[in-house]
Design a protein around this nucleic acid. Structure first.
Lengths: 158, 158
DNA sequence: ATTGAAAGAGTCTCAGT
DNA sequence: ACTGAGACTCTTTCAAT
């Protein structure tokens, strides 16, 4: 699936430099990596065409905005064939920001972001209980996020 | 903590427009929101000063790069006072991209991103077993990510 | 493939409202 | 607080290597 991407050291260096902060200019990044700004541009264009670079995103501090309650919900389904139907219903709940189909302790695993505990309670007691096909759920509340980072791409290639 | 942020409808509209794709220009975004490009600029500058907007990030498709094995690890500690020491050791494992201190089924909850199952096996069997203070772990492997999105900011304010 | 420079587009500032 | 225009910086293209 990954096909022949043929990325070299410079490509990975560009990804590493921009993945957490894309504010540096091509000219400055070129200086840092000992190539011209034009080369940085060509490489990024190539990676966009390959689909490796999808674009840029705003980096928002949701905590400051008041969204500081994070919880994980492990979901047991009555039958695993109910996955698609339950997933569609979970997607309608805006506080659920991520959903994975999993193997191990749970059939599905969701991440929830809320403004406060009462909103979380609402999601768990009101929204989730409405959904048919869920046998039971385990709630894991995050008291603190120790760290969150991107996978370090090409540890070996550099 | 969140203090008086005093963000209005326009600020939230800007966040919503830029959080998933920050490539639109201030002039074009201004047209869409019926204000001038200069106003968009002032608002974003204000939100950067407030710390709400941290900057921009490259949006990378890690799956295309070959990082397509995602797993979650629930960790039981021997004593919860070991949290800081265990967290410091987990941070040294590059495949662990996120760690939360949790209440509920587990003491800690980690997310792992690997290139393949054998790399995951290495993290679980070799790296994790070395760490003192971990009683046992549950591994939840993601077979498929149904969706992943940002929290919808200010559902009520808009 | 990379470079350096020119053209085009975007950001940033500011005087006026 | 918003606007529009000018100054400035960055991106993008391209001929030359």
């Amino acid at each position: 699936m990954t096909g022949k991407l043929n990325l070299d050291k410079l490509d990975f260096q560009i990804i590493q430099a921009m993945v957490d902060n894309a504010n540096i200019s091509y000219a400055d990044l070129g200086k840092k990596l000992f190539v011209s700004g034009g080369t940085i541009h060509v490489r990024i264009k190539k990676m966009q065409e390959l689909g490796v670079v999808r674009g840029t995103k705003f980096n928002i501090d949701f905590k400051i905005l008041g969204y500081d309650v994070i919880a994980f919900i492990g979901i047991y389904l009555e039958k695993s064939s109910l996955y698609d139907s339950v997933a569609a219903q979970l997607k309608k709940i805006p506080q659920i920001v991520r959903l994975n189909y999993t193997t191990g302790n749970y059939s599905m695993f969701a991440e929830v972001v809320c403004k406060d505990i009462s909103q979380l309670k609402f999601v768990l007691h009101d929204e989730l209980q409405k959904i048919k096909g869920i046998e039971r759920t385990d709630t894991i509340i995050s008291l603190e996020e120790s760290f969150s980072r991107n996978v370090l791409v090409a540890e070996n290639e550099l």
